[in-house]
Design a protein around this nucleic acid. Structure first.
Length: 998
RNA sequence: GCCGGAGUGGCGGAACUGGCAGACGCGCCGGAUUCAAAAUCCGGUUCUCGCAAGAGAGUGUGGGUUCGAUUCCCUCCUCCGGCACCA
């Protein structure tokens, strides 16, 4: 027999699987379904990396396992191909982003096929294909046609909103307006305020370097997530999606999902629900009220001043100052003297200017509080005290009402501000029920209300609730729930994205295109570079932009059909020139896989019902991907899903029932040795842990540090693993004095040069070894370092299985099969002596085989692939110790191995099964195990005395307690250890252990 | 600062619901094979003491519950991840 040659085997089976469409999913609704989904990749120019293949292998194992268990498995793959990197690269290399994208897709597809993933390639989707983005545009228009009914907590068609306005069930928010008196144009304008997709002029994150705006989620520490360029705030007219309307639904939906708690927590934090109250404060000498949001209305009696965000509208209407309260100490007033000298108006204006000039980053980094007095006084509604109003940038304009009541005694930030400016601090909560002054200020924790006439003595939760009640009775405020989440900024000033299927009319209203106008294709453009201004590249496609349309349907909610100029009733219109962000296409791709070529619907309803609407297992059964999408893709797609659900297009409320994040794969550990400039080695204990980097004489970056004691400059050098003696705890250089050196793993990155390319691994060890190793490294969700030696380890395992079955040398087949009367090895009949050995060997491996089947089955179910592999390794080690291997046992091991190492299993299956083989081992059903055969007939039970191991006794499995105790008590070791002491208590855990207490 | 998660041999990691700590793999040591090497096979490998049989210690730290704790509870330490002036 030939030796194991992964290159040959893999090429052969890859072709056969594709030709015979072995892994096609069917729409046969009589079978139970299983939908296992990967986060489809952005096909970057760098190709696939081992992080992709880790998650994809995990899902592939589950897909292959579930097929073997009789499920109709949906396991698709596609391309999230719109986006910045391809466009940036296209600009740099003067190519069309579409061409680059197609090239990258071809490369990714070939790479994925090489790894042997069992995707149904007929279902491949590409978000940049007009046949796909037609439906992305269609769903966008559905959002545009939907408003959120607060009462029903549900998205409803705009037509129903119009119906409510017309029948008078609902009135317009502005009381002086009457729906029936508005023109169609005015009605269209009113409706825009309700649509889930709307345009608004608002401060947005503008990134000059990328020439586009970005969503809050795409800005990290004041810099763009892509490229790390600075981002500034500026007002622009932009498309938004009203995700805030669904905040509560998105929060509630998390409850039932089988996601990790940490992931749910990230979404909860992002949505940021907080319960509290709105409280109205009168402003002295003014008509306007100042409304604040607080989560601690119980501390209202402790409010000693108020703070507005610098951008707050009340600030602009400054009045002549009133001076500071008389009861305040003289030194406090002294502090604010400067302020009153130039006058509050001038001081406020100066502060506003200063605050506006600060970047988001500067503001976040500042530790001390700043602010100025506005000259305005507010009246605390509960005690009618006059309290001054300040402005400060520690209050954010975007959250709550942009204004707060400051309770310095019970809020650390207010406390800091009060200390900075010597403002009074008044305790209204005590840490003790009896002592009114217990607990150090600022005391943010719950306690008991003090110095608060309305609620004194009440514990914080009751005090809060009582205060809300009283505020509502007195008409001073009301309960309120606030969310941190902001509406989703949905437009980008780039070329390579889905065009918005809308036109703008001369009356400045926006009208959706008619459905048969879709897809609205991206115009072919030679020059698609950003314009350098806020105008998107599409603004240069003049012919495409300028159109004439006929408005169809009701005039207050029409659809636009593009017609030639001069057509009767046609009006001129301009196309929208923004494009959608990259997230658009990935919001719903899991639905398109179900029915990828349908041009009449984004997905056929019956098909959707079968795959997503199952009663027992609704939605995607398993979704695996990186944690980087915890708040972006995973929140956006849940939002779109809920809208589609509300509008009756799909049958479930949540898309992804079970979700798992694969952990990052780090680069191979790097060894660093430190030397002084004279070349002496220095032990890591003497190296200052604060390291830096500098460019060395060869132009490469090198690690530098200094000697902890002498302060001498030290240079860190990389050192090859084989230069390192690893036996000792102190890693030391061979042929040198023993010194400790540094060992660390880093994230894979091009600049570090530690990226592992799956192609290289496949070329050397084969795809099966790659798959096995990535699953064997450790738990799927854990961060873990790459190890070349580890790949060799699993490669050796495959070779050992190969040799166990086919013999170490040519012709020594060790697999035997039994017919009615005789045993055969290939076509040769075994002689009686061999038969005896074969029978004995079959008995030896019977129970381990059943145990292995059970272990692998259970481990795949709980995604514990590393232990499943180790179980197969153990079983193979047993096979190595016997002379003959029964064919049935061999085939079962191969069946277990197939999800992990499909090429290997396929090849070996065909060698062993010969003409009886099916097209593919993947069509063989999963082996069953007999629970009774999973335990040995005789078990060895450890005997403890007072919890300390003293001996072991052999008893039949499942033996009765008396029998085992009897055996333990008569064991010579145990008797001698007991030394005649009386046994007070005997504990027996069935088939596990005996503990004797003396 | 707040909120999560995790700390087990030289390394990656295993241990089901509280029941033999260290499975499996890597590395290392010894042996077989070989002229030699690679590859392969066999044996060993938590630490300390001991020639050995064996004895003792041991799952970040300190305590608790229990016949029995890597597992449950409390204290502290370290690392990783998320959020971060959100009132």
């Amino acid at each position: 027999m030939a030796v194991y040659n992964p290159g040959l085997i893999e090429k052969k089976w890859r072709q056969i699987w594709l030709e015979k469409k072995i892994f096609a999913a069917s729409n046969d609704i009589s079978r139970p379904k299983y939908y296992v989904l990967d986060m489809f990749p952005y096909p970057s120019g760098d190709g696939l990396h081992v992080g992709h293949t880790e998650g994809y292998t995990a899902t592939d194992i589950v897909a292959r396992y579930k097929r073997a268990c009789g499920f109709n498995v949906m396991h698709p793959m596609g391309w999230d191909a719109f986006g910045l990197p391809a466009e940036q690269y296209a600009i740099k290399t003067n190519q069309h982003p579409g061409e680059i994208t197609q090239k990258n897709i071809a490369r990714f597809r070939a790479q994925l096929q090489a790894v042997g993933f069992s995707y149904d390639w007929d279902r491949e989707v590409d978000t940049t294909d007009p046949g796909y983005y037609k439906w992305t545009q269609w769903i966008f228009l559905l959002l545009h046609d939907t408003w959120f009914d607060e009462k029903l907590q549900k998205g409803r068609p705009i037509a129903e909103l119009i119906g409510e306005f017309e029948s008078g069930v609902r009135r317009l928010p502005e009381k002086n307006k009457n729906w029936k008196e508005l023109t169609p144009t005015e009605q269209r304008q009113e409706l825009e305020k309700f649509r889930l997709a709307y345009r608004v002029e608002a401060p947005v994150n503008w990134c000059p370097a990328l020439g586009t705006v970005l969503a809050n989620e795409e800005v990290i520490d004041g810099k763009s997530e892509v490229g790390g360029f600075p981002v500034e705030r500026r007002p622009m007219l932009q498309w938004m999606l009203r995700i805030t309307a669904y905040a509560q639904r998105l929060l509630d939906g998390l409850e039932k999902l089988d996601w990790t708690e940490s992931l749910k927590l990230m979404q909860r934090n992002w949505i940021g629900r907080s319960e509290g109250a709105l409280v109205d404060f009168a402003v002295k000498g003014r008509d306007e009220k100042l409304t604040v949001f607080t989560t601690r209305p119980d501390t209202l009696f402790g409010a000693t001043y108020m703070v507005l965000a610098p951008e707050h509208s009340l600030v602009d209407m400054s009045l002549p100052g009133h001076g500071l309260p008389n009861q305040w100490p003289a030194e406090t007033k002294e502090k604010w003297k400067n302020n009153s000298q130039i006058g509050p108006q001038a001081a406020v204006a100066a502060y506003q200017k200063w605050a506006a000039s600060r970047s988001e980053r500067q503001r976040q980094e500042s530790t001390s509080k700043t602010g100025v007095f506005t000259g305005l006084m507010a009246i605390n509604p509960v005690n009618n005290e006059e309290i001054p109003i300040f402005i400060s940038d520690y209050v954010l304009v975007g959250y709550g009402t942009g204004a707060i009541m400051a309770v310095p005694a019970h809020d650390a930030r207010d406390f800091d501000f009060a200390r900075e400016f010597d403002l009074p601090i008044k305790r209204v909560v005590s840490d003790s029920k009896t002592d009114p002054n217990a607990g150090e200020l600022p005391l943010e924790a719950d306690g008991w209300a003090v110095n608060s006439p309305w609620i004194d003595g009440l514990a914080t939760p009751e005090a809060t609730s009582r205060m809300c009640q009283l505020l509502e009775i007195e008409g001073l405020g009301k309960r309120q729930i606030n969310y941190k989440i902001r509406d989703w900024l949905f437009s980008r000033q780039r070329y390579w994205g889905e065009p918005f299927p809308l036109v703008h009319l001369e009356d400045r209203t926006t009208v959706a295109l008619a459905e048969n106008e879709l897809p609205l294709k991206l115009p072919a453009m030679q020059d698609f570079k950003p314009t350098g201004t806020i105008d998107p590249p599409l603004s240069k496609a003049k012919d495409w932009i300028n159109v004439h349309v006929i408005l169809e349907g009701p005039q207050n909610n029409p659809r636009a059909r593009v017609v030639p100029q001069g057509t009767p009733d046609a009006v001129p219109a301009l196309r929208e020139t923004n494009t959608m962000p990259q997230w658009a296409g990935s919001c719903w791709y899991y639905l398109r896989f179900l029915d990828p070529r349908d041009d009449r619907a984004f997905c056929d309803k019956k098909i959707e019902q079968y795959w997503m609407g199952s009663k027992e297992n609704p939605g995607v059964d398993l979704y695996v991907g990186g944690v980087e999408h915890a708040v972006l893709h995973l929140l956006y797609s849940r939002f779109w899903h809920k809208v589609l659900f509300d509008r009756g297009y799909i049958s479930t409320n949540e898309p992804f029932r079970k979700l798992v994040n694969q952990g990052t794969i780090l680069g191979e550990p790097e060894y660093t040795v430190f030397q002084t400039q004279s070349g002496e080695y220095v032990s890591i204990e003497d190296v200052d842990p604060e390291w830096g980097a500098q460019t060395g004489p060869d132009g490469k970056l090198q690690t530098i540090s200094k000697h902890k004691r002498t302060g001498e400059l030290l240079i860190g050098k990389a050192c090859e693993p084989d230069q390192v003696e690893k036996r000792d705890e102190a890693f030391a250089l061979k042929k040198n004095q023993e010194i400790r050196i540094d060992v660390q793993s880093f994230k894979m990155s091009k600049s570090r040069g530690n990226v592992v390319n799956p192609d290289d691994v496949i070329a050397t060890y084969g795809a099966d070894a790659l798959r096995l190793f990535e699953m064997f490294m450790g738990p799927l969700e854990q961060m873990k370092p790459w190890s070349t030696a580890g790949v060799e380890g699993v490669y050796r395992f495959l070779q050992r299985v190969w040799r166990n079955f086919l013999g170490a040398e040519d012709g020594n087949l060790r697999v035997v099969h039994k017919t009615d009367a005789a045993w055969f090895c290939g076509s040769r009949q075994l002689n009686p002596q061999e038969v005896q050995t074969a029978e004995r060997d079959a008995a030896t491996i019977l129970r381990p085989l059943h145990r292995t089947v059970r272990k692998v089955t259970q481990d795949i179910e709980r995604l514990s692939f590393n232990t499943a592999i180790s179980a197969m390794m153990e079983f193979n080690n047993i096979l190595g110790k016997v002379t003959w291997i029964e064919q049935d046992a061999a085939l079962k091991l191969l069946r277990l191995l197939e999800p992990f190492a499909p090429y290997f299993a396929e090849e070996m299956y065909h060698i062993l099964a010969g003409q009886n083989a099916l097209d593919s081992i993947s069509q063989v059903s999963w082996p069953v195990y007999d629970e009774a055969l999973c335990v040995d007939e005789e078990v060895e039970i450890p005997v403890q005395i007072n919890g300390k191991l003293t001996g072991r006794v052999k008893v039949p499995a499942g033996a009765a307690e008396e029998l085992v105790i009897q055996a333990a008590m008569t064991d010579t070791q145990v008797i001698s250890r007991l030394g005649g002491r009386a046994v007070k208590k005997k504990i027996y855990v069935k088939d596990r252990m005996v503990n004797l207490v003396v």
